[in-house]
Simulated scan of single mutants.
Amino acid sequence: MNETGWAIDIDRDDIARAALVADPTAPLAPGQVRVRVDSYAMTANNITYAVFGKPAGLFGNDQGYWDFFAERDTPGRLPVWGFATVTESAADGIAVGETFYGYYPMASHAVLNVGNAGPGGFTDVTPRRTTLPPIYNQYQRIGALPDYRAADHDYWPVFRPLFLTGWLIADQFEDEGDYGVQQILIASASSKTAIGLGFSLAQRGGHRPETIGLTSAANVDALAAQGIYDRVISYDQIMTLNAATPAALVDMAGNGAVTRVVHSHFGGQLQASIIVGKSHWDAQADVEGLPGPERQGFFAPGRSQKRIADWGGPAFGRKIAEAWLAFMDVAPRLATIDKRHGGEAALAAYREMLSGDADPKAGILVLPA
């Protein structure tokens, strides 16, 4: 399939059904560019994208993640974060050979519609994308990224969007006075978003709540050794926590059983329950009649837009850059990069992540070529 390129098609109604297909090229229209996807990450976050591929209310309209790269009457194309290089350009201001960081389909190539091209990059203005969150439609020139370092290149797709989500959750806690809690319980604490949250909370000066990572018993020692959280305990130890201490739960994976245990144990002392992802896509939600607060979803693009409005775009960018560079100083000891090459390996990586068998200490990086 290398001659024509490849893509992975996913059944919109059954995300376990995925197939590697040929993806032939077509002539570009004016304003379009064709890019070769150089590398992208496959993480639990991408499974959340698949779960919410169909309209789910996240975007405040009748669109979902399938609408970024697939028309309604076609199979889903999963969005991924990565780097791509322009191989053909019919757009002013975008040259062949330029490399951009951004949102791409799980494929070897992609065609993007260029708008607002400038020194920093461009915005995709495909009609169906213009009503989707702007943060997903921005493509940044690698040379214009203020916090890009060549040594960190492979960590950008693996950690950047997940770290940003964790950092934004930490910012929301600080903005909300930590909801008045003394401890923050972080479920699926070995996930990369959770690690970004734990790291960001630890960077805060002054008083802050204790961070408690919740993970499987087999992961406790290794996760504790990373020093990201104040404490790490197994799921079966939740009941040993002091139920009289005000707490908040951040659920990274949509694990209904863990949510029920935490809500039942803390009851009225649970001040906030935030769900971030749904990588446990096949688990029962089990949220009917939960004691304690109503669960609230966290949507990183919405939080980003709020902070851009609060601080201005340049200040928002500077804050992220400072936090990211600090995190990159420790990221290599938190995860190894596991490179997979080609379409068959890409499909296998998707199925591995879907099964829940992926090693949380590795960052899967797919190199499509």
Rank of each mutant, 00 (worst) to 15 (best):
I142M: 14
I142C: 09
G143W: 10
A144Y: 06
A144V: 08
A144H: 09
L145P: 00
L145V: 12
P146Y: 02
D147T: 02
Y148K: 03
R149K: 12
R149P: 01
A150C: 00
A151Y: 00
H153M: 01
D154I: 03
Y155Q: 08
P157D: 12
P157N: 13
F159Q: 09
F159C: 08
R160M: 11
R160Q: 13
R160W: 14
P161L: 14
L162M: 15
L162T: 08
L162A: 12
F163Y: 15
L164D: 10
L164F: 12
T165E: 10
G166H: 11
G166F: 10
W167L: 15
W167Y: 15
A170D: 10
D171A: 12
D171M: 07
D171P: 00
Q172T: 03
Q172D: 12
F173C: 04
E174Q: 14
E174P: 00
E174H: 11
D175S: 10
E176C: 04
D178R: 01
D178L: 00
D178N: 14
Y179P: 00
V181D: 00
V181L: 00
V181F: 01
Q183L: 01
I184N: 03
I184T: 02
L185D: 01
L185Y: 02
I186G: 02
A187H: 05
S188A: 13
A189M: 03
A189L: 04
S190C: 01
S190W: 01
K192N: 05
K192F: 07
K192M: 05
K192W: 07
T193F: 05
T193P: 05
A194G: 09
A194N: 05
A194Q: 04
A194F: 02
I195Q: 12
I195M: 11
G196Y: 05
G196A: 07
L197K: 06
F199E: 04
S200A: 14
S200L: 07
S200F: 05
S200G: 04
S200D: 04
A202N: 08
Q203M: 08
R204C: 04
R204L: 07
G205N: 05
G205I: 03
G205S: 09
H207G: 08
H207R: 10
H207L: 03
P209A: 11
P209G: 10
P209H: 11
P209I: 11
E210N: 02
I212G: 08
G213Q: 08
G213K: 09
T215W: 11
S216T: 13
A217G: 03
A217C: 02
A217N: 06
A217W: 06
A218P: 00
A218V: 14
N219V: 01
N219S: 14
V220F: 10
D221F: 02
D221K: 13
A222Y: 02
A222P: 00
A224N: 05
Q226R: 15
G227I: 11
G227T: 12
G227S: 10
I228Y: 09
I228C: 10
I228A: 09
Y229F: 15
D230E: 09
R231E: 12
R231N: 13
R231F: 10
S234M: 09
S234F: 09
Y235W: 14
Y235M: 12
Y235S: 12
D236R: 11
Q237D: 15
I238G: 07
M239W: 08
T240Y: 03
L241R: 14
L241I: 14
N242I: 13
N242E: 15
A244D: 15
A247D: 11
A248H: 03
V250P: 01
